[in-house]
């Protein structure tokens, strides 16, 4: 492909710089590509000790940074942890290998509702194993708002001008606007998207800032009354500032799922499956959950949580059947993605 040569060059340079001194375990190696801060480092050590497979671990910041590396095949990975819509894109572009579930008996630990939800992007559950999931909702400060919040409308409320924190990402921002207008968050309808864009422009005047990870710290520090946030951060923020409350708005929201997949060109496919199976073990999944605090789809691990308040916490483990308007991001194709980006740029530069 076109980006191939350039990346190959970079790969050669990196290989020259990092290649020396690599020690392979007696049973080979597994090359893992995961989100930053998304695994308990002890888990990797335990895996190496138990299986004799050495782990080469690499991190990415966004799905979009990860994707070209897999597409170009310049650096080979055995197991990657992208999000829902990106998995769909990778399936469509034939970058993923089917997982042999005979090698992953621990899949039985995964609660079936997450596998069913996964079918939105992986229709036959052939390519992915859910690792973490969550919702996107509103985090609000009880002392700074008049009444309990249950709707995205609050983000357009003039009374909270300069007290609102929005997510600085295309899909999440448009999800909020589209859901509020009663549309699907996977809409590609031109008029619906224009309407969403217009409402986001209106909202920009009320927004204090567009942020990503900083929502957490700003809400804890009482900088704003209302913020859009991932549920995985909600439990942590509440433990730091008891006035904070997380809610899934009644218009519905996004359920995101990050899952393990195996690229087609993975050099150590069997080790990758061993790695996934290891992470699906109840005690390992629990250890990981306690470290990263993002909700685990592992039912067996959830049963092991000793703190009752967390185990039955509707923020961490919402019952999907209670909602009929939860969706998962779909890959919308190159043209629609481009359209979203262009509209978002219009909002941001307005």
């Amino acid at each position: 492909m076109k980006q191939w040569t350039a990346l190959l060059l970079l790969a050669v340079i990196t290989a020259l710089l990092t290649g020396c001194g690599r020690k392979t375990g007696p049973n080979g190696e597994v090359i893992v590509y995961n989100w930053g801060e998304y695994i308990d480092p002890d888990v990797l050590v335990m895996f190496e000790e138990e299986t004799g497979i050495s782990v080469i671990y690499d991190e990415f910041e966004t799905n979009e940074i990860m994707y070209p590396k897999i597409e170009n095949g310049a650096s080979l990975y055995d197991v990657v942890c992208p999000s829902d819509y990106m998995i769909e894109k990778m399936i469509q572009n034939e970058l993923l290998a089917e997982i042999n579930f005979d090698h992953i008996p621990n899949i039985k630990n995964i609660d079936s509702q997450y596998l069913i939800q996964s079918r939105e992007f992986d229709p036959d559950n052939k390519y992915s194993v859910p690792f973490c999931f969550g919702t996107v909702g509103i985090l609000y400060n009880k002392t700074m708002v008049d009444s309990p919040i249950d709707s995205w409308d609050i983000l357009w409320d003039e009374r909270y001008k300069d007290n609102i924190l929005m997510q600085d990402s295309v899909r999440d921002a448009f999800m909020v606007a589209l859901k509020r207008l009663g549309y699907s968050m996977n809409s590609t309808d031109e008029t619906q998207l224009q309407q969403a864009k217009e409402s986001l422009i209106v909202q920009k005047a009320l927004t204090q800032a567009y942020v990503v990870d900083q929502v957490r710290d700003k809400m804890i520090g009482n900088e704003a009354a209302i913020g859009v946030i991932y549920s995985g951060e909600a439990i942590y923020t509440k433990s730091e500032n008891n006035d904070l409350e997380y809610v899934i708005p009644k218009e519905g929201t996004n359920i995101w799922i990050d899952s393990w997949v195996i690229p087609k060109n993975a050099p150590n496919k069997e080790n990758a499956e061993k790695f996934i199976n290891f992470l699906c073990r109840a005690d390992i999944a629990l250890k990981n959950f306690e470290y990263i605090t993002y909700s685990t789809p592992n039912a067996a691990a959830r049963a092991l949580i000793t703190d009752d308040e967390i185990r039955s916490n509707p923020v961490a483990f919402p019952d999907f059947t209670q909602y009929d308007n939860l969706e998962t991001y779909r890959y919308l194709g190159e043209d629609a993605t481009y359209q979203y980006n262009a509209l978002w740029k219009e909002v941001k530069s307005y």
Partner: peptide, 22 residues
């Protein structure tokens, strides 16, 4: 700028990290 003010540097950065449009 709270992400509300886009400079040309921000736009270029987003093209690479968010839009994947090198």
């Amino acid at each position: 700028g709270g992400g509300k003010i886009l400079l040309i540097g921000n736009i270029i950065e987003k093209e690479f990290t968010q839009d994947g449009n090198w």
